[in-house]
Nucleic acid binder design. Structure first.
Length: 555
RNA sequence: GAGCGCGUAGCUCAGGUGGUAGAGCAACGCACUUUUAAUGCGUGGGUCCUGGGUUCGAGUCCCAGCGCGCUCACCA
């Protein structure tokens, strides 16, 4: 049954112990723990109630309690013994002595192992060292740990084992449990926030015939009875806006999206997103709402707007706002002058002019920043890690502009991501995005090449994306057609045509603001977790073949 | 997808320059009726990730593969 001899022998020994426990008259797997005349309390409730009581007070008026938990430490001492029970993240010590529990129960006690579940009843007292402890009268066996627990001092430290065997990680490492308690609190706070503002929580399809609403590669699945391929959704966006057309003026959805792309400390193939839509609002309204929301959630969850991420203190009550073009100028590194000016972003020619001045000015001067590789094809640049991201981005922008592979807006967005994004540690809203990278957003009235869209950043990565929704069906159809063009040119992430969505818009979508917020990433920020896998209970791992399977495969 | 690092007992980790594998916890046995990383005495436990190669000899060196982590790319 087990690959290791050690685990198999422990398992066999524990089965023998279970047999002995049954021989003493205790069921090996009882159906419940329900002592007579005594309500079973949680360990948290007992601690909450009696942690403040002195030993004298507990001696004067005896408090009888019943509780259950997993044995996390056990210290036998002749005809008595201590054990520490753990339940729901709370711990409490128990003390069992033969003259109190009787011969039979003490025999049972001696058959207990770390990891077993037991129930006890008895009275509370304080030991010589002052620790609150249950003096056990009756001992009930509940369930056996058939495998040995990890080391009791260091716990389970191997990162891979922690993700693969989260069930062990959770009861061994208290802080892991805390992260997921907070994650639940974050979801609760978000629902509270939106419910209080008249938003309706809805659920839209996760299996979609057209995977729309974002630029990403979808997972494909198949429905047998209908014999059709379906996609796991990459975003709920287009369905939620259909609901706004239908008169649900304020809706939100919190659930999973699936994107068939790379895995990193910031990306899991399935991730949780909050998306919400508010009729008669625009992106400026959502900026205010976003700042309010993040602060509210932080206060509800942590009781403070301060949080520490990557050893940097972040204040979620202090927000900055820049346009994308302003951000490039502001965050342009001084060692890489000339810094661009707003006019440089006006046309392909002006941008190319600035890029050339910048690359020439830096050539050979600052080796760490700009290596001498101007002539190289960009395919090598993109996948190489030996050049500065800034340099790679500038070259990519320049080459794609010269070869007319990308519009001006796409090049500017490229430069922005390389220059500014890593520096956006404190809460920052970046607004006014290029039309070219925003197929679903509404144009700015005075600058038709730019749209009313913003993203917000905390800790150096993007947490949310919002815009004034494009509600002109004719324009939307044109944008889809443009995306189809990019699809034909090989962009697998370009948007597909969604005729029914255009039809929905044709019935009239009111001016609407919509936003998506990555819950996993927000949880990272609020819990100080560096990896997204630390805030997802079961992150996707490559399945591990057993040795016997591996042999079979290789044959 | 690329680069770097890691993989030794159930767990946490040691194992200069190649010489047949070790500690603590856990497990098993004994002692111990207020301990708390309990203590004392004793015992067992390993395909050193997998497969090749070099060598008289490989945990150690070389090659390939697998898994994980980090960085980068894609992306949220």
């Amino acid at each position: 049954m087990y690959e290791s001899e050690f685990e198999q022998s422990v398992f066999d020994l524990r089965r023998e112990k279970l047999r002995q426990i049954e021989a003493l008259g205790h069921p090996a797997y009882p159906n419940s723990f329900a002592p007579e005349n005594l309500k079973v309390l949680t360990l948290a409730a007992i601690r909450g109630e009696y942690d403040a009581f002195t030993g004298e007070a507990l001696e004067k008026d005896r408090v009888n309690v019943a509780a259950a938990g997993r044995i996390m430490a056990i210290r036998a001492q002749g005809k008595a013994g201590f054990a520490v029970l753990q339940q729901n993240g709370e711990r409490l010590q128990i003390y069992a002595r033969m003259d109190a529990v009787g011969e039979n129960a003490f025999q049972l006690y001696k058959l207990l192992d770390m990891g077993d579940h037991i129930g006890v009843s008895g009275y509370l007292f304080r030991t010589r060292t002052g620790e609150l402890t249950i003096h056990v009268d009756t001992l009930t066996f509940l369930s056996k740990a058939m495998l040995p627990l990890p080391e009791k001092y260091h716990g389970l430290a191997d990162v891979e084992l922690r993700y693969r065997q989260r069930y062990v990680d959770l009861f061994m490492n208290a802080d892991v449990r805390e992260v997921f308690v907070k994650r639940a609190a974050i979801l609760r706070a978000m629902r509270k926030f939106f419910d209080a503002r008249g938003f309706l929580e809805v659920e839209t399809p996760m299996m979609q015939p057209i995977a729309g609403g974002a630029a990403a590669k979808p997972f494909t699945t198949h429905h047998n009875a209908l014999d059709i391929d379906l996609y796991l959704r990459i975003a709920p966006e287009l369905y939620l806006k259909r609901l706004v057309v239908g008169g649900m003026d304020r809706v939100y959805e919190i659930n999973r999206n699936f994107r068939n792309e790379g895995i990193s400390t910031q990306h899991n193939p399935e991730f949780t997103m909050l998306e919400f839509y508010q009729a008669y609002a625009n992106y400026k309204d959502l900026m205010d709402l976003t700042e309010e929301l993040i602060q509210f959630v932080a206060m509800e969850v942590n009781g403070t707007t301060k949080t520490t991420f990557n050893d940097v203190e972040i204040d979620l009550s202090q927000w900055q706002r820049f346009t994308m073009r302003e951000a490039i100028i502001k965050f342009w590194p001084t060692e890489a002058e000339p810094r661009p000016m707003l006019t440089d972003f006006e046309s392909v020619e002006s941008l190319l002019g600035w890029i050339d001045r910048t690359l020439e000015g830096n050539l050979e001067v600052r080796a760490g920043f700009v290596p001498k590789i101007l002539g190289e094809p960009l395919i090598h640049l993109k996948s190489s890690s030996s050049y500065s991201p800034l340099y790679v981005a500038l070259n990519f922008a320049r080459n794609s502009l010269e070869l007319e592979q990308a519009p001006l807006g796409k090049a500017i967005a490229e430069v922005f991501e390389a220059v500014a994004e890593p520096q956006l540690i404190q809460p920052t809203i970046i607004y006014d995005f290029p039309l070219a990278v925003s197929p679903l957003s509404k144009q700015k009235p005075d600058e038709p090449d730019w749209v009313e869209r913003f993203e917000f950043y905390i800790g150096g990565f993007e947490l949310g994306n919002a815009f004034s929704e494009l509600n002109d069906p004719v324009e939307q159809r044109n944008r889809f057609l443009q995306q189809l063009g990019e699809r034909e040119r090989g962009d697998a992430e370009a948007h597909a045509m969604d005729e029914d969505y255009v039809r929905a818009l044709s019935f009239g979508l009111p001016p609407t603001g919509g936003e998506g917020i990555g819950i996993d990433r927000l949880t990272m920020v609020l819990t100080g977790s560096r990896s997204i896998r630390d805030v997802i209970l079961f992150p996707l791992m490559r399945p591990q073949a057993k040795q016997s399977d591996a042999d079979a495969i290789s044959e």
